[in-house]
Simulated assay, not measured.
Amino acid sequence: MSESAQPGPGHDGVSATVQYSTLDRVRPGHTATVVGISGNAEGHVAHRLAAMGLVRGTEVTVLRAAPLRDPRQYRFRDTSICLRGVQTSLIDVEISGEAGGGHD
C-alpha cells in the first residue's frame, strides 16, 4: 500500500489529515491503527500476524527502534513485541494527525 493522505474530520471542528501507510514507516513514539494485512503477504505470514492480534482496528504504538532501525519494538493489546521491517511492511495502517502536521 502506498502512502497517501486524505482529509478527515478532526476534533473541535479542526480539519485533520488521515494518512495510509505501512507499520514499518511509522516513527517511534507514534501510534497507528491497523487497516489490514497486505494481499502480498504469504498466507502463513498473514495468519501469524492476525493470530498475534494485528487485525483491523488494533492500535499499535512504535516504542523504539534498534540502532540500525531493525527490529523495532511495538505495543498493542497489552503486549510488547519486536518485529522486523519485512514483517511490518505487510501491515497496512492509518495514521491520524492534524492537517499540515503529518508523519514520516
Rank of each mutant, 00 (worst) to 15 (best):
S2L: 10
P67I: 00
V34C: 01
G57P: 01
S96G: 04
A5L: 10
G39Q: 12
S21P: 01
I91E: 02
Q73G: 04
S2K: 13
G10W: 07
Y74G: 00
R64V: 08
D92I: 07
V62D: 06
R48S: 15
M52F: 14
Q73C: 09
G36S: 03
V35N: 06
G39I: 09
P67W: 00
E59F: 03
Q87H: 10
G39A: 14
T58H: 00
H44A: 14
H30W: 11
G97P: 00
H103A: 11
G36H: 05
T33A: 05
R84D: 12
I91C: 05
M1P: 14
Q87W: 04
R84I: 03
Y20M: 07
T58Y: 01
V60H: 02
Q6W: 06
P71T: 04
G13M: 02
A50K: 15
Y20K: 07
R75T: 13
I81C: 05
G43L: 13
L49Q: 08
P71K: 09
G29T: 06
Q87F: 09
Q73R: 11
V62N: 00
G13S: 06
A50C: 11
V55S: 06
V60A: 01
S21H: 08
S21R: 09
S38G: 05
A32L: 00
I91D: 02
I37V: 12
S96C: 02
R72G: 09
L83F: 04
H11K: 13
T33V: 11
V93Q: 00
V93D: 00
G36P: 01
V55L: 05
G97L: 03
A16P: 01
A32S: 03
Q73K: 09
T31V: 05
S21C: 11
V26M: 00
D70H: 07
Q87D: 14
S4K: 10
P9M: 13
G39V: 10
G97E: 05
G53D: 03
L83S: 04
G43S: 15
G57A: 03
R69N: 13
D24F: 10
S2T: 11
T17W: 11
A46L: 11
R48F: 12
H30S: 11
L90A: 03
V45C: 13
L68C: 06
T17S: 15
G85A: 07
R48Y: 14
